[in-house]
Design a binder for these strands. Structure first.
Lengths: 206, 206
DNA sequence: TAGATTGTTAATCGATTAACAATC
DNA sequence: TAGATTGTTAATCGATTAACAATC
């Protein structure tokens, strides 16, 4: 039996809840309330309770939510109670930063491969990784059964890379290239483009 | 007189329209339609027409939208018919990548300063910039009248950096640190956290 | 002209909020 | 117990879509 479908707008808030809770945990906090969480995130308490109630009853009337317990539940819901192997494609400045990024620790992800098509880069060391030949991309990720990838190549190559990732079995792509990717329906894409974020803010400036 | 307030959800789509149109322009396309734009972006044609109609009548019945003209209009609306000077705080891997990023070209932004508090980094060269002492942060951005900044420091320092940016007059912050920032109401913040994007996708994976 | 596509209205759909009984 | 906070319902609010007259 399949449970009811949760709206993506709710799913998109769960990682934010999780991140705040993990921060509270680092501060050695034990319990919190929908109100406190809402204040930290700029989200209404009612919405947080409603969102969480889609997945179960995680709180206690009168006292609120046990932080550790709620972290566990959210990790389970978001499938980050495991570590996902991630392939990085592109060993330029962005690929470099992403491959060496410490921020995936305890968040459910681990970079395991980095690819580039530049012969001068192939075989060189980036952090703990040796840059692989992008020609082997499809085969390598298929063999390693990797489902998550990050694209950090120029826009002109991004669609081609995406096609090969999909061929290799990738199901989730985080794309740093400033273009929209065409992928099959069962492949998820998220975009990071700093210019897009900045333009959304300059609208409000003079 | 102040025009009616446009919902932020509409504002958030305008940069996506602009990016697609600029790509069409690079392909030497001259006109497009709400339908074509919608297909490229995965957004309904009706919504695109509705969004644009908040700001004026930019199309022609029967023929669609002149790409160059619509680009001009969107640049004006988003206030990127000018180039905004941007300060980068943090000269680690991410600050490095952002400072050297070529993708701000023609998008309305130009990095002009980069700061760090590490004595070993201060004075060194990153691309065309010399790393400045983060102690001078507030004064430097105030003197240069910079309104836009990107935070690329560890989470533990991000709130402190944000406070000093606000003190210096910053009105828009793009935050790469994985924490929520508290800032005054008139300061806009956007967040980039790859783990958040990835977790939103792993929800849908097995 | 005929065909195409806009801008806009009204209808639909979905998300958020307010309120409160339940209960820790 | 009294106070606090949940989970949930119903009401409100806002966003999206369908449809079409206008017109290029």
């Amino acid at each position: 039996m399949t449970g009811k479908t949760i709206p993506d707008i709710i799913v998109s808030r769960l990682p934010l809840y999780l991140r705040s809770l993990q921060r509270m945990d680092e501060e050695n906090r034990k319990v919190t309330s929908s109100q406190e969480l809402g204040e930290r995130l700029g989200i209404s308490a009612a919405q947080i309770r409603k969102d969480l109630s889609q997945f179960g009853e995680f709180g206690k009337q009168g006292t609120g939510y046990n932080i550790n317990f709620l972290i566990e539940q959210l990790c389970r819901i978001l499938h980050v109670d495991q570590e996902w192997d991630v392939a990085v494609i592109g060993a330029g400045d962005i690929g470099n930063a992403v491959a060496r990024y410490k921020g995936f620790k305890n968040r459910g992800f681990r970079v395991v491969m980095i690819f580039d098509d530049d012969p001068d880069k192939i075989g060189t060391q980036i952090g703990e990784f040796t840059v692989s030949d992008a020609n082997d991309l499809t085969e390598s990720i298929r063999n390693a059964q990797i489902q998550v990838a990050m694209i950090a190549v120029p826009g002109s190559n991004a669609q081609n890379v995406a096609d090969r990732l999909v061929e290799g079995g990738i199901k989730a792509i985080l794309n740093y290239a400033p273009i929209n990717l065409n992928v099959p329906e069962d492949v998820n894409v998220q975009y990071i483009d700093p210019s897009i974020h900045l333009q959304r803010m300059t609208y409000y400036l003079e």
